[in-house]
């Protein structure tokens, strides 16, 4: 089936099997391999992308369901050749080790802070509790997200 989406600001139109998940479509049809697949049954959060501004698990969504949607992946977070403030905070706090959960953590945190720039530690932990990290102790991740809040106070576009 033909699907048209706007992905990271660019219009794309592709032909996919109905059974293809949005995650597999992004990775294997569009080459956007920043979106990772860790469980394919909606638990680990690695495949989180933003669909029409809201964080969603792209393994729990068919590509055909994203027809006419605006999708933002981790590749769409960096701006002007520089790390976004959120990404920079992750780097500074060493909030990643193997990097496999990182895209999902970033998209989730970005969606959260875009809507709730005041989110406190409890809220950040609650929201990130849908994302599995097997390497870190979560502490640095939470610290990085909290530090990045400043950059969202003006109301950043999701």
């Amino acid at each position: 089936m033909q699907v048209s989406m706007e992905i990271n600001g660019k219009a794309v139109s592709i032909d996919v099997e109905p059974r293809m998940t949005l995650a597999d479509c992004l990775r294997h049809h569009l080459g956007l391999t920043g979106t990772h697949v860790g469980c394919e049954h909606g638990v680990c959060g690695a495949c989180t992308v933003m669909v029409d501004g809201a964080a969603m698990r792209s393994c729990l969504m068919l590509a055909v369901q994203a027809d006419k949607a605006k999708v933002v992946t981790v590749e769409g977070l960096s701006c002007d050749e520089a790390l976004s403030p959120l990404q920079a905070a992750f780097r500074k706090h060493h909030a990643l080790q193997c990097g496999f959960c990182t895209p999902g953590m970033l998209t989730t945190a970005h969606a959260l802070l875009s809507k709730e720039p005041q989110a406190d530690e409890t809220r950040v932990r609650e929201v990130l509790s849908g994302n599995l990290c097997r390497c870190t102790g979560y502490t640095a991740l939470v610290e990085a997200v909290l530090e990045a809040r400043d950059a969202y106070q003006g109301g950043q576009e999701a």
């Binding site: 990775r27 391999t33 920043g34």
Partner: peptide
């Protein structure tokens, strides 16, 4: 010292086995 390869991973430019075709 922060990791130099962190930037690549943060931008979704990691290259894991399943990313290769």
């Amino acid at each position: 010292v922060p990791r130099p390869n962190a930037r690549r991973l943060l931008e979704g430019r990691g290259r894991y086995t399943d990313d290769m075709v």
